[in-house]
Amino acid sequence: MSELRDEIHAVARRYPARRSAVIPALRLAQERYGWLPPEAFREVAAALDLTPAYCKSVASFYDMFHLEPVGAHTVEICTNVSCALVGAQRTLEAFERELGIRAGETTRDGAVSLRTIECAGGCGWGPVVAVDHRYREPVRPEDVPAIVGELRRTTGGA
């Protein structure tokens, strides 16, 4: 655990005040746990001399922090205007069919979480889908089975 603390301290040194390191520290904790459980807030708070409640209040403001467990893989589909105009909803529905879940859910085996996101900044190349935070552009319904297959293969035949 002190490994995480050391990493956080190293990041904090880059800033005029260590509170600036809250977001990077939460990211480090999330990379470790996969989400932000109560102990993550305790550790980040201790490393930065803040309270866990403060750290949680910051985390809850930002979309990329998970306050609940998520799947081993994440699939995020932009449904903002530009992507929606070129078929993002059909791409989303293809993922829902292929994974057997709705947007906002995680597959029963914990392999994949699916959700919609606001504009990801790939408007001219949409529909944009972020798979484990790497953009795939564009993703059409016919591309979806291969992507899901790829994710299933890398989570042990789920």
């Binding site: 005040a17 600036s20 390191a21 977001i23 990211r27 930065l48 910051v58 979309d63 996101i117 606001e118």
Partner: peptide, 28 residues
């Protein structure tokens, strides 16, 4: 010095004072 600071998903942090708040480790 140049420091790269990654945000965490909030449109409002593009607004300049929201950005500063976020960079200070607060809600943006």
């Amino acid at each position: 010095t140049i420091v790269l600071h990654r945000g965490a998903g909030a449109y409002i942090c593009g607004e300049e004072t929201g950005l500063l708040e976020s960079l200070e480790g607060k809600r943006g």
